[in-house]
């Protein structure tokens, strides 16, 4: 087994997901199946292989520094579940800094 339920709990916290305990159990099982399958990659020696992040070798794509009109604030806020005084509103944040 690659990962236990405690690891699944930790990963769920990182991903901001809440899993019921039966869900957690099932998830642990399924993730282990997939990770076992992924172990197949270890058959390959990739020591000297460069990783591919992009399928095409494009580079240096830029924008000029010219201001364009922003969204009307009412439109920017239109989809917000909660808003107040021109701002998005969230449950009180206890400052932890970032």
């Amino acid at each position: 087994m690659k990962i236990d339920q405690a690891t699944v709990e930790k990963v769920a916290m990182l991903a901001r997901l809440e899993l019921a305990s039966d869900e957690e159990e099932k998830m642990t099982e399924q993730l282990n199946d997939i990770l076992d399958y992924a172990d197949k990659l270890n058959e390959l020696d990739t020591e000297d292989v460069k990783p591919t992040a992009h399928a095409l070798p494009i580079k240096n794509v830029f924008r000029e520094d010219v201001v364009e009109e922003s969204l009307d604030r009412d439109i920017a806020l239109k989809n917000a579940p909660e808003k107040e005084s021109g701002s998005f509103k969230v449950p009180k944040v206890i400052e932890t800094g970032e």
């Binding site: 990770l35 992924a38 390959l44 990739t46 292989v49 990783p51 591919t52």
Partner: peptide, 12 residues
């Protein structure tokens, strides 16, 4: 072990 490895195999 996982992501980087996969990106390398992607190259192959």
């Amino acid at each position: 072990a996982y992501y980087l490895k996969a990106q390398k195999v992607r190259t192959l």
